[in-house]
Design a binder for these strands. Structure first.
Lengths: 212, 212
DNA sequence: CCTAAAGTGGAAGGGGTCTTCCGCAACAGT
DNA sequence: ACTGTTGCGGAAGACCCCTTCCACTTTAGG
């Protein structure tokens, strides 16, 4: 019979995850591991033993957020008003960097080997593609909008929030306003061509997330 | 009589500046100083002696680029077609991160104490304000566009080019397309209010650039 | 040429982060 | 309560970057 897992070990693991969510959210996923350990009230060794690589901790920390992201896309795609669904989803996505700096980084990083994360991301993208199709069919979204402009928007809004600050969060709402109006079907001036999605995603940041 | 400055010292200083322009342009202004020295073919001590702080080297390296930026704003403000001037200037600004990653950082950083840099930046902003006024008067630019959305645009485009790559450069041209169309006067949906410029600029990254 | 001064490069020191190691403490099962 | 095991925490080592220092080289001027 395998022994029952130790209660304190389980508790420590959860404390680390809670601390990671806090710290990553505030300062991004490249924050010193020692800071996470300190905030969790555990030693560095305990942190490392549970999550040998930074990517392991990141994956465990943001699994829920990524699932939530995909769920939000699903809900938006099911909205009875496709344009409202589109605006709502874009607004949600653009405000991610305000709420959670770490998750914004995760969304613009490809974690090779982190199945959970990548599966949810893909699901989110699929739902967004559906959403875009519906919004175009309704005549609200310009025809040359590409679902693959989404990472672009994420990178742009992430750039604005590089220095976390309330003033920039306010300013960012303006950027969202500009972008949404630019997405409206009433704009007919053609856009420059997009790069092949393949190249686009290859250009994002990569990290190998072993997940032991 | 003061001696004539040594020829090799002058040459080294110039080599350092050339190397810094290259390296900063490719990898940003936070690249290790040793890398700049290596590329310049000089020792670290030589670099440090000429530019005691990183900000000193940055200021010396990007003085010309900042002047060029202000000049471009002046030219745009003098364009006989204000809307063309506006679009041209925004396109120029948005492509800065593609051409020169370091300069993009400089543009979104306040260098306290670097007179040359700050003077030119201010001049650029003044000219941009003139440009905006003209474009609005011509009825081409939406009335609620604020000149202080410029740093916002800079941060956004800088975020897209975080990972330097040709595919993202192409994608970025799309972002520029979206933004310009959103700026057109034909868009009448009001934008969210902007933060007070004071708060906005206070939120940018700060570095003190002593300039010995 | 010769010399004093100016300039050079690399090595050593200090701070910070990541990783490994190991003696010790706490827990589950009896 | 006892015990074998599991997990803990901090210290030590490695690495990277910036800064300071100093013996040596190169230059300008006589």
């Amino acid at each position: 019979m395998s022994r029952q897992p130790r209660a304190d070990a389980v508790r420590n693991r959860e404390r680390v995850l809670a601390a990671a969510a806090e710290v990553f959210g505030e300062a991004g996923i490249d924050v010193p591991m020692s800071e996470v350990a300190r905030r969790a009230g555990v030693g560095i060794a305990t942190l490392i033993r549970n999550f040998p690589a930074r990517a392991d901790l990141v994956e465990a920390t943001f699994g829920a957020a990524m699932t939530d992201y995909a769920d939000t896309a699903t809900r938006a795609a099911a909205d009875s008003d496709p344009w409202a669904g589109f605006c709502g989803f874009i607004g949600y996505v653009c405000r991610i960097p305000q709420r959670d700096r770490g998750f914004a980084q995760v969304l613009t990083t490809m974690f090779t080997g982190a199945e959970l994360l990548e599966a949810q991301r893909q699901r989110g993208l699929r739902e967004f593609i559906r959403l875009v199709r519906r919004a175009k069919a309704a005549g609200a979204l310009r025809a040359d909008f590409s679902p693959h402009d989404l990472p672009l928007i994420l990178l742009a809004t992430g750039g604005v929030m590089r220095t976390q600050s309330p003033a920039l969060a306010t300013a960012q709402d303006r950027l969202i306003g500009y972008l949404l109006q630019a997405c409206a079907a009433s704009n007919t001036t053609p856009l420059p061509g997009a790069p092949p999605p393949r190249d686009l995603y290859a250009a994002l940041e990569f990290r190998r997330g072993g997940q032991s």
